[in-house]
Design a protein around this nucleic acid. Structure first.
Length: 278
DNA sequence: CTCCAGGGATCAG
DNA sequence: CTGATCCATGGA
């Protein structure tokens, strides 16, 4: 499947901190794992080549890469000042992926106080140990039931560290229907976040990432170390500012498009090391 | 060696 | 309520 290259940069999409199940071949060529599929994506001149069947493309990848949405309109609306103009131009090919909600739950529990390469390693280990083989050394993300039946020691062996008990708690609460993470259409974002925060190891930031990347709640504004740095640098005169205040500032500034704004800001901050101490 | 990572739980005040 | 400390692990 070939589509026109517009508001699409595979490197920016996969390396803006929302996705951990890919392998880089080069800047314009990646392997992406989702569900029980492996996709080879390649940028060529003004086209994007999805090496998949038309059926898989329509059923999975089209929505996964959020191709039904007009990003030029979104960018226009959040381009409210000089800072955002620079961030949007820097990451102009970013799109927010629509990923599996349970996978996002576990993924962002793993993300806490961790580095991106290590997050990828833990997810790969969990998938290899508890997922289904797709092809070669690639495995699908584990189901709730599989992870629920794993014991803490096995999860720790995947290098999850102190987060293993959080993963276990998440699986128990989901498997036993102590929390509802599946029929969520009737819940607003605040209610959904409150539900997720009942899980140990899920706080405000992790909950925001889960609803943004796993539930399409694009009004969420996760504030991590990088967003804190870039926001303090540009909007708070480098003064140490509370996370809740930064989140409120973002939500008021970007309204229901906060998640997109946050993602352009995260990407430019991390790529350029904005605000990082020496 | 020390410091820190897409934070949160727990404890001290 | 706010702020400090601890948490596994590995790379800089």
């Amino acid at each position: 499947m070939i589509i026109e290259k517009k508001d699409f940069n595979i490197k920016q999409i996969l390396e803006c901190g929302q996705h951990f199940r890919h392998e880089k071949i080069n800047d314009k060529e990646y392997l992406v794992i989702a569900e029980n599929k492996i996709l080879h994506v390649e940028e060529k001149e003004e086209k994007i080549i999805f090496n998949s069947s038309q059926k898989d493309f329509e059923k999975l990848w089209k929505n996964y890469f959020d191709l039904n949405r007009d990003y030029s309109e979104i960018k226009k609306q959040i381009n409210v000042d000089k800072v955002m103009n620079e961030a949007i131009n820097f990451g102009s090919g970013i799109r927010i992926l629509n990923q599996d909600s349970f996978e996002m739950l576990i993924t962002f529990i793993i993300s806490q106080n961790n580095r991106i390469p290590m997050i990828k390693t833990v997810i790969k280990n969990l998938s290899k140990k508890f997922g289904e083989k797709i092809d070669g050394d690639y495995y699908s993300f584990p189901t709730v039931e599989k992870l629920y039946n794993a014991n803490i020691e096995e999860i720790k062996e995947c290098k999850a560290g102190f987060r293993a008990k959080y993963i276990k708690d998440a699986c128990e609460k989901v498997y036993n229907n102590e929390i509802n993470i599946y029929n969520t259409e009737h819940m607003n974002t605040k209610e959904l976040k409150e539900e997720l925060i009942k899980i140990k190891g899920v706080g405000e930031k992790v909950a925001n990432c889960i609803v943004l990347f796993g539930y399409g709640r694009r009004e969420a504004f996760p504030v991590d170390v990088w967003v804190k740095r870039v926001m303090e640098h540009y909007y708070f005169e480098n003064k140490d500012t509370k996370l809740t205040e930064i989140e409120r500032f973002g939500n008021e500034k970007f309204k229901d498009l906060s998640g997109y704004a946050q993602q352009y800001l995260f990407y430019i901050a991390r790529e350029q090391g904005i605000g990082k101490k020496k």
